[in-house]
Design a protein around this nucleic acid. Structure first.
Lengths: 196, 196
DNA sequence: ATAAAATGAGTGAACATTCACTCACGAGAG
DNA sequence: CTCTCGTGAGTGAATGTTCACTCATTTTAT
C-alpha cells in the first residue's frame, strides 16, 4: 500500500504553509503551527534551526514544485510562441490548483525575506531551480530572432508574468472562475504583450 | 509665505508611511513611528483611535493622491486607446515618482486589511475614490465597441495593471531604469494585451 | 538499558495601548 | 499691566499581551 509516511517534519511544513497562506505571517505563531501539525512546540526546533529557516526551506521547496510542474512535457524544439504558451499555461494551472502555494509565495515575496531572494534570482547567472533560466532562454532567443519586443529582461518578465499572477490572484480570491478556454485566452493576451 | 504648517498629525502619517514602505509592517512599531515623527508615543493615540485606524487612513489618503494624479488632464472625449495610454502612463509615472506610496500600498494589499478592501473595490457599484470607475467605464465602452478582448472585468484589470505594477516594482527595487520612451513602450504592450 | 525523539511549561524580549501627569498659553479678575 | 487660573495638547513610564525559543522531563525505539 502506498502508505504516505507523513513525517513530523512534513506535518510541520504543511501546517506552516497553510497558516501563512491563509492568515499571513502574523497569523502563524509557532504555537499555532505546532497545534495544527499535532506536534509539540519544541519539536519544531528539532527539525529547523529557527522559524526563519523553516520558512525559507518551505519557500524553496514550493518553488521547486512549481518548476517541476512547468518543465513537465516542455519541448525545447517547439517554436517560441508554443513554448511561451506552455510555460504560461502550466504555471497558471499550477497556481490555481495550489492556492496555498500561491498565497504563501506572495506572502513570502512581500516580506523582508522576499526582496533579497528576488534580486539574487534576477541577476544570478546560475539558478538553483532553473525556473527563470527557461524563461531567460526564451527571452534571449526571441530577442535574437526579433520575435519579441525590444525590452530589458525584467520588463519582459513583468509583461509575461505580471498579468498572469494577477489573474491567478483574482481566481483564488474568488473574483473570477477560470476554465481551459479562458486560460488559453489569457496566456494568449500575455503573448500579445510580449510579441513584437 | 507658504509656510508648510506641518501638523503633528501629518508628521505621524508621514513617518508611518516611510517606515512601513521601507521596512514593512513588522518594522514600524509605534515607538519607532513616534521617534521618527518627533512626537511622543501617546500623541499617536490623540490623533488616531489605534494603529489600525492610522494605517487605514493613510491608505485612503494615498489612494486618493494616486487617483488625482491619474485624472489630471484626463480627456473623456479622446479615443479609447489614448485614454488607456493616459491612465497607464500617469499611473506608472506616479508610482515610480513616489516609491514610498507604491511600497506602502503593496504592503497594505498583502496584509490582513488588504483583501477585504480589494473585494469591496471590485464589486462595489459606487467607489469612494472613483479610481476604478474610470477604468471600468473604459472596459464597458471598449467591450461594447469590440475594441478590447472578450474577457471579464477582473481579467481586464489584471491584464491592464498587472504588468504595469510589476514593472513599477522592478524599477523601484532598482532592477531597471525607466525613461519616457520605455514607459510608452510598456504601456503600449499593456494595450496589446488588452486590445482585440 | 541506553539513546533518540518528543514534549510543553517557562522565559525574556518586543509590542500596542493606557493614563496620570506636565506645562504653555489664553481668558478673566483685580 | 500683572497675576491667577482653566484648559487640553503633549508626554513616556508602566501595563498586559503575544511571541519565538529553551530545556528539564517523559515517552518511545532499539
Amino acid at each position: 500500500m502506498g502508505h504516505l509516511k507523513k513525517t513530523k517534519r512534513d506535518e510541520i511544513m504543511q501546517a506552516t504553509l497553510e497558516l501563512i497562506a491563509e492568515h499571513g505571517f502574523h497569523g502563524a505563531p509557532t504555537a499555532m503551527i505546532a497545534e495544527k501539525a499535532n506536534v509539540a512546540i519544541g519539536s519544531i526546533y528539532r527539525y529547523f534551526e529557527n522559524k526563519d529557516a523553516l520558512v525559507n526551506e518551505l519557500y524553496y521547496e514550493i518553488e521547486n514544485r512549481i518548476f517541476e510542474a512547468i518543465i513537465a512535457n516542455y519541448q525545447k524544439e517547439k517554436p517560441i510562441k508554443e513554448r511561451f504558451s506552455h510555460i504560461g499555461e502550466k504555471l497558471l494551472k499550477y497556481l490555481i490548483a495550489n492556492p496555498m502555494a500561491f498565497r504563501f509565495v506572495e506572502q513570502f515575496h512581500n516580506s523582508p525575506y522576499g526582496v533579497a531572494v528576488r534580486r539574487e534570482r534576477l541577476f544570478a547567472e546560475k539558478n538553483k531551480t532553473g525556473k527563470t533560466d527557461i524563461l531567460k532562454e526564451l527571452y534571449r532567443e526571441g530577442k535574437a530572432n526579433q520575435l519579441i519586443k525590444d525590452v530589458q529582461l525584467p520588463v519582459f518578465f513583468a509583461l509575461a508574468l505580471g498579468a498572469l499572477v494577477a489573474v491567478a490572484r483574482n481566481h483564488i480570491l474568488g473574483f473570477i472562475k477560470l476554465d481551459d478556454h479562458r486560460i488559453d485566452q489569457i496566456v494568449g493576451a500575455c503573448w500579445d504583450a510580449v510579441k513584437r
